[in-house]
Simulated scan of single mutants.
Amino acid sequence: MTTTLPMSRFIQNYNQHLTLAEQTDAVLILEQRAGRPAWVLESEHRVRATAEATEYVAAALAALVHDESLVDRFASSFATAQPWVAFLPARDRKRFAVETAETLRACASIGRYTAFAELMEDWRNTAEIWSDPDLAAALSGGINEPLDQRV
């Protein structure tokens, strides 16, 4: 269960909100004003459980993508979960599967997922380029006059 409330209301009655969250195992989302980021408040038990589950899934995926008999099928069928993966050439789908699984496992080991989010964004951008055949062809072609060699 998730409860969203303004940060100011949480501050005014924090004990009441924390007690209710403890009783219901709820996650509190505390919104701020003026475009400031929201904060997520959850129990240590929930955080540890999520971390353990994420480490397990990451290890399972890493094992899967290193099994040559499974990685191609996994990479191809992953387009069901992330439809944009279908735009990647077949050879890149395998690289995508391996890189994301390894990066997720590394991120799970330290509890920070910024590198994983950045990698996923890079792969989505790559898929977007491949979705436009003219753009993909233009970016895949040779460079007649490299910019760093101009006089």
Rank of each mutant, 00 (worst) to 15 (best):
A59N: 01
L61W: 02
E55V: 03
F78R: 03
D134K: 01
P133H: 08
I110V: 15
G141D: 14
A127P: 06
A108D: 01
V65I: 06
L28W: 07
T114K: 04
W39G: 11
E145K: 07
E44F: 09
F78S: 10
Q12E: 13
L119V: 00
A38M: 10
T103N: 09
A26L: 09
T54I: 02
T19A: 13
R46T: 12
T103C: 04
P37D: 11
L61F: 04
T54D: 06
R91K: 07
T24E: 15
A117Y: 01
N13E: 14
E145F: 05
H66W: 06
A58I: 03
R112T: 06
Y56V: 00
E145N: 13
P133T: 13
L135C: 06
A60M: 07
D72Y: 03
W130V: 01
L88M: 04
A38Y: 13
T126V: 08
R150G: 09
W123L: 00
S69H: 10
L135H: 11
A106I: 03
G35F: 09
A34W: 04
P133E: 14
L88C: 02
A127Y: 03
Q82N: 02
G35N: 02
L139G: 02
A136P: 10
L18D: 10
M7P: 05
P37T: 01
S140K: 12
L70T: 00
